[in-house]
Write a protein that binds this DNA or RNA. Structure first.
Lengths: 177, 177
DNA sequence: TATTGTTATACTCTATAACTATA
DNA sequence: TATAGTTATAGAGTATAACAATA
């Protein structure tokens, strides 16, 4: 079994391993969030909707949908379920009455807090292989990456720069310009 | 082997951030792999099948399916496409003729190598926010996590220990024991 | 005219079950 | 009897297109 090569970019085999690892961890993450949000109508994505609403980052439905990488029509169904469960509300935006602002209810905050604590436990379990310092470092780096990627793919952007560059690479064109 | 959480339930906002960050990064990962494997019949999962076959870790179809977290019936369709494209072959296992061993062809190796180099470029782009040392550290930690999770969910295991524990947490039962 | 949100339709994907062959 | 693989069917999930309200 191949083991964690130190070589960064040079060897393809090294990246092969990283790609594989990301996939494994990603699937574990999906399983974890699915299990935690099993009883939530809408599943893991509803959890992220709640999370966004709690930060007041939700904005309009379509910006939120773009941010979560799902279709805006799906967002309608998702919110229908969450509203029915009394976890969020749709409020008209005074500035632009076409928009519906997604705001979390008190009950929604309670449910979210509960789910997040469960998620914290699950996550600690998943990160058991790392010591405290490493966990902190990992959290910091992943957080920074997330903020960078969010900059790449803001709500008002329909086509992500990263994806475009990657597509260019796939076409054989050098990325960057 | 208690969980030793630093601030488990106390500050929800802290963990909330990590959960969110993982989601953002993973969505970027999914978009990336999807874009790279766009022309591959079967998409990103076919890429992982090729990767497993190249390491000779594929084993039988069902063990591979379990490892990739997909149904064995889906694996049949996936392999049908890959065989049709001449990238892998199904060979009978002399030891147990019920099994079909998945072996990569020369052409499959070529395609895989090409896709992996594209993936390496895309990944470097995604990790631009980190310096060289941090990237190495991240790769190392993710690799270690992946190996741990793989131990949790080996091919012969249909129900993952992590998932069971998490489900227990979701039910209100304390995890671990 | 363009955009937000909704609804209806069609499509894709995935899982469930039944079948064959090997053990 | 139990398991690996295949196939067919049904179900869930998703996107496409048409519509109403607002800008």
């Amino acid at each position: 079994m191949a083991v964690t090569p130190q070589q960064p970019t040079g060897s393809v085999a090294g990246n092969d391993d990283l790609f594989w690892s990301w996939g494994v961890v990603f699937r574990a993450y999906v399983r974890t969030t699915a299990a935690v949000a099993a009883d939530l109508p809408g599943g893991p994505r509803a959890l992220q909707v709640l999370s966004a609403a709690a930060r007041d980052e939700a904005g309009s439905q379509s910006t939120l949908a773009a941010r979560l990488g799902i279709d805006r029509t799906v967002m309608t169904y998702l919110l229908d379920d969450l509203v029915r469960a009394g976890l969020v509300e749709r409020r008209p935006d005074p500035a632009d009455r076409r928009n519906r602002r997604v705001v979390i209810t008190d009950r929604g905050r309670g449910v979210l807090s509960d789910l997040e604590s469960r998620l914290a436990h699950a996550e600690e379990h998943l990160l058991e292989g790392l010591d405290a310092d490493e966990r902190d470092a990992l959290r910091g780096m992943v957080g920074r990456l997330a903020r960078r990627v969010a900059d790449f793919d803001p709500a008002d952007l329909d086509t992500c720069r990263v994806v475009r560059d990657i597509a260019a690479v796939a076409e054989g064109t050098p990325p960057g310009d």
